[in-house]
């Protein structure tokens, strides 16, 4: 049986990579990486999913099945990191736009 969330993971990562590789607008490249990050985060969370589990707060629900706590902690950290990365890349785009008046990657100056 194929898990539905794994299909979503594959679609999100594929969309993210294709946007990052094929798009020429820098903002779209940043969006692609964001989408890809969401795909990876979904993958991590679904790794720790337990059928019928609740949120892993032990003191609230000592007797119920809980989903695994570690992937959730990982995902939280990873979301924070993607936020920093996205903000940094967008600020680079701002710098490039204010210098060249364009965020098209074909109009770049760095060449061999």
């Amino acid at each position: 049986m194929i898990d539905i969330q794994m299909i979503a993971v594959v679609v999100l990562i594929a969309l993210g990579i294709s946007a990052a590789v094929l798009k020429r607008n820098m903002i779209k490249v940043v969006m692609g990486i964001g989408v890809m990050g969401s795909g990876v985060n979904l993958f991590l969370v679904s790794m720790g999913y337990v059928e019928g589990g609740v949120a892993p707060i032990f003191t609230n629900t000592p007797n119920l099945t809980m989903v695994l706590a570690t992937p959730q902690a990982l995902t939280l950290t990873s979301i924070v990191i993607s936020l920093a990365v996205t903000a940094l890349m967008l600020s680079f785009s701002v710098m490039i736009y204010s210098k060249y008046g364009s965020i098209d990657t074909r109009k770049r100056r760095l060449k061999e």
Partner: peptide, 15 residues
């Protein structure tokens, strides 16, 4: 502009 371009490239690749 060039250094921002280099940094953007580095960041895309490494992320």
């Amino acid at each position: 502009g060039e250094s921002a371009e280099a940094a953007f490239k580095y960041m895309v690749v490494s992320s």
